[in-house]
């Protein structure tokens, strides 16, 4: 009989004792008259209440931006911002974008081409040509 380890999913805690959402504030801009804001207006009217109540740690600021396309801006605890234009989108699509902003870390989007990334220093240290036994040429 094969011995199997107990399956356990790790909880992401950012290396700390509690999970902190990186998105701290979300600005929601709409226009009263332009057609590209129709979905956004519907989202504010019917979808925002549930989303905002489910995320009390995010501050939501809704304000009109007349004669402009609707935009959502996420502000992150690293001081960065992330904007998404949601023109001509349906309310359900805008909800997806709001979830994307919520889940984003605020970091720049970088290409990841290594299987493992870590912020911890290597235990082996940095190689130096002046240390160690040297190499006979």
């Amino acid at each position: 009989m094969t011995i199997r380890a107990i399956e356990k999913l790790s909880t992401s805690q950012n290396g700390l004792g509690a999970f902190i959402l990186q998105c701290k504030r979300m600005d929601i801009h709409y226009c009263d008259h332009s057609g590209s804001s129709r979905g956004m207006n519907a989202f504010i009217k019917h979808g925002l209440q549930r989303f905002a109540a489910a995320h009390p740690q995010i501050e939501f600021a809704v304000s009109p931006r007349p004669r402009k396309h609707p935009v959502m801006v996420g502000h992150y605890i690293n001081g960065k911002q992330k904007s998404i234009c949601v023109k001509n989108m349906e309310a359900s699509q805008i909800l997806k974008k709001a979830e994307l902003l919520r889940d984003a870390s605020g970091d720049k989007v970088k290409r990841v081409n290594k299987p493992v990334t870590s912020v911890n220093e290597s235990v082996r240290g940095v190689w130096s040509p002046y240390h160690g036994d040297g190499m006979a040429v």
């Binding site: 504010i44 009217k45 905002a52 995320h55 501050e59 600021a61 809704v62 304000s63 009109p64």
Partner: peptide
């Protein structure tokens, strides 16, 4: 209602009363 903010102030008090939501009737 002429604007969305007027409409929400009139009909969606549960949205306006959320503590983490600020609703501005004019451009910020």
């Amino acid at each position: 209602a002429k604007t969305l903010s007027q409409d929400i102030q009139k009909t969606k008090q549960d949205l306006v009363s959320l503590p983490n939501l600020a609703f501005s009737p004019k451009r910020v």
